[in-house]
Amino acid sequence: MSRYVPPKQGRVGQFLDVAVLLAMTFGALYAPLYLGLAGSSKSVPAIGEATWESLGQNATQVAQYQALGLTDPAAAAPIILARYDYGFSWLALAVMFVVVIGYYVMMLRLSDREYRDVIAEKFDGSNGRTRR
C-alpha cells in the first residue's frame, strides 16, 4: 500500500513547462489570425454613387446617421451594405462536432483513470493501478 511521491521539479523545469504552455497558447490563438482564417468577414456589394435612397434608408435612419456624424452617404455605405455569408459545408460542421465530442470523450476517459488513482490513495492509502 504505497503512496505516490511526486518528484521535485527544479526551477529550470518549471520555467520550461511555463514556456511550453505559453508557446502552445500563443500558437493556438495567433495562428488563425496570421493565417487569415480568423473570423467571418463581411462582403460589400459594389454600387455606383451612394445616396440615402439607394441605401434604402428612411428619414429617421438618415437623421440618426447624421447625428452620429455620418453626413455623407458614401461614408455610411460600407457599413450599411456589408453582409455576412452564412453558406456552410455540412462536412465541415460534422468535423467540428466530431472534434468537440472526441475532445470531451478523450478528456473524460483520461480524467476518470486519474481520478480513480486519487480516490484509491485518498480512501485506501494506495495509489491505485496506474503508476508513473
Binding site: A28, P32, G39, A92
Partner: peptide
Amino acid sequence: FLGYGTQLVAMIVF
C-alpha cells in the same frame, strides 16, 4: 461555427 469555426477547431486542437 457559422462565423468562427476555424478558431474553435484551433482552440480545441490546442
